[in-house]
Write a protein that binds this DNA or RNA. Structure first.
Lengths: 158, 158
DNA sequence: GTCGCTGCAAAGTCTTTGCAGAGAG
DNA sequence: CTCTCTGCAAAGACTTTGCAGCGAC
């Protein structure tokens, strides 16, 4: 186990669970558990934001300057996580892909077009209708997402 | 007026309306109405698909081989249309941006992850809830979008 | 005639890939 | 010890920009 890990400050039962899922996934595919992969997962977990590959990279470089993590590794790990459904990417607006941990409960997003902030929400009625619609159209639904765009309270008062 | 235009086969009142909005928009900004811009608008209008810049370019090259429309012009025109809200882009899945005319009535999308096809739909209940949610969260809603991902009927039987 | 537009090619971004050495199992 | 990972740099894919000649008005 890595030295680095002992520096993390937001370790929780939830995170331990996530980490062990990840390790299991790796083992099942004869992949290796490396410091880089751990740091990426942990950073995604500890961030409240939705991260781009670039911002993830910067965060990691700042927190672990000695690790010299390459951007290519970030991309490789994100797509590994994405293919294993541990992470979901959002591609709202202009600014490229943003990633979030998919382990979290399903939710939708409401995005402020002024400040770029993203708030999460869930609405049961909408969830139900989405299933109904997929059925009506003969689709076998695997996933869904919804975004509302607007101006948030704070930006309205500015 | 261009020679080219007389070749189009799906001219409708709706299209004429769209075209005249476009011309007005151009005039207002002292921009010029060119054959290329006309062809792009018309091709977007006549296509039932959601087009990528690349696929738009190919369509146009095939239909008007003499025009030698450059890909750069496609990009420039799409972003002009986008900034004027005449066109909306969707960025589902992996395959980059797809554009659709925004003049059409609002609708959501259900996407087959096997064949990539996109079907449009509208659901009143969902529309209502979206407005309600934005209100609850103090957002001034400007727009929203929803996607359902799954496997379509045809792909299920394959 | 003026001034914006276009195609082309070059330059930018963002993302992926090849490779040789490092490191997990 | 084996075989996957990693960082680096080079290559790709996609998009934007600079420029000189063309064309709408």
């Amino acid at each position: 186990m890595s030295q680095v890990a002992t520096n993390f400050n937001h370790r929780t039962i939830e995170y331990e669970q996530l980490l062990s899922n990840f390790k299991e996934l790796l083992k099942k595919n004869s992949l290796k558990f490396t410091i880089q992969r751990e740091v990426i997962l942990e950073t995604l977990y500890n961030s409240n934001e939705h991260l781009t590959p670039e911002s993830l990279h910067t965060l990691i470089k700042n927190k672990f300057p000695d690790l010299k993590t390459g951007i290519a590794t970030i991309y490789r790990t994100l797509s590994l996580l994405e293919n294993s459904d541990m992470v979901t990417f959002l591609s709202f607006g202009a600014s490229g892909k943003k990633y979030e941990l998919g382990a979290k409960k399903h939710h939708d997003h409401i995005i402020c077009t002024a400040c770029g902030n993203i708030t999460e929400f869930v609405d049961e009625q909408i969830e139900k209708r989405q299933h109904a619609i997929a059925n009506e159209l003969g689709f076998k639904m695997s996933n869904h997402s919804m975004q509302i765009y607007g101006i948030c309270k704070q930006c309205q008062t500015k």
